[in-house]
Design a protein around this nucleic acid. Structure first.
Ligand SMILES: [Zn+2]
Ligand SMILES: [Zn+2]
Ligand SMILES: [Zn+2]
Ligand SMILES: [Zn+2]
Lengths: 147, 147
DNA sequence: ACACTAATGCGAATCATTCGCAATAAAACC
DNA sequence: GGTTTTATTGCGAATGATTCGCATTAGTGT
């Protein structure tokens, strides 16, 4: 009776079709991994979670960049040297809390920047539009603060 | 009568001495370039502004990392793929406005995050401290918005 | 089944940044 | 001044992340 898994699978597939992508095994698996994780994943983490056969990193990079370009996933650079990709689950954009020691990443759902962004534009001398912002917080997670 | 240039020079040298660095021609020239520019400079920009003889990028990277570690300059990663370094002129930290097309960078002097940062920590489930944040705004500069 | 083209796989290339190590040259010491 | 100590340099080579070129494979629509 439980159709949850298959529904999820077909959801991911439908999403691919809707966005004009082809429903390939690789991109299905990639979206599965991303959609099951509610935080940005690095390439290394994705590779670790990868269960399908071989995995070519060029293909992986291309799929991720492809998804990011159409907003299917969001790419964030958290000053850790490598990009991370996150499935947004339909949520609006949000921010992150990054442990300076172990690079643990936690989602920060609230955004307090929207009005400030308008002020930034007003005060700017050489910009005519501000479309978006990146905001990351850095600190120590519980585990790392004990050491 | 005008001692401005020489005073600036010796200031930069004094700063090196105070921080325990050696007063070398290279690091003097580097600090000159950084201190004369009120926005973060990429390595490529620094090389372009470099007037001294040859310039070894390993040496440059090491000096910049060295300066950043002791707070002489601030390193910022603005999602442009390359790090930028900025002399703070004693100012508190601030944020940036980045043109999505040409990567023009403008300083945003105000910071509206301080109180929000406390809230983020309170709401966090796995962090015990938040020390800092990065905030960058992305938009279009006047020149790029005309095209 | 066929045509069209997105997506893949492979290797090699590129780009930013870092490393190893011997050579230099400040700063400190006699 | 001459000597020691050690930061800094210079060079080349390594690393690591990301991208490119191109032939091959495989969805999708007809
Ligand atoms: Zn997130
Ligand atoms: Zn926001
Ligand atoms: Zn700045
Ligand atoms: Zn701030």
């Amino acid at each position: 009776m439980s159709r949850k898994q298959s529904v999820t699978d077909s959801d991911v597939g439908d999403m691919l079709t809707q966005k004009g992508y082809r429903r390939t095994a690789g991109r299905m698996a990639l979206l599965e991994i991303l959609s099951k994780t509610r935080r940005p994943l690095s390439i290394a983490e994705i590779i670790r979670l990868w269960k399908k056969d071989p995995l070519d990193q060029a293909t992986l990079y291309r799929a991720l960049e492809d998804f990011a370009r159409t907003g299917v996933v969001h790419r964030s650079d958290l000053n850790t040297g490598t990009a991370r990709y996150e499935y947004l689950h339909g949520r609006p954009h949000h921010h992150h809390l990054v442990c300076a020691k172990c690079e643990l990443v936690e989602d920060v759902e609230v955004c307090v920047i929207t009005e400030a962004q308008k002020k930034v534009l007003q005060r700017s001398s050489s910009f005519t539009a501000v479309y978006s912002h990146n905001l990351e917080f850095f600190g120590l997670c519980t585990a790392c603060s004990k050491v």
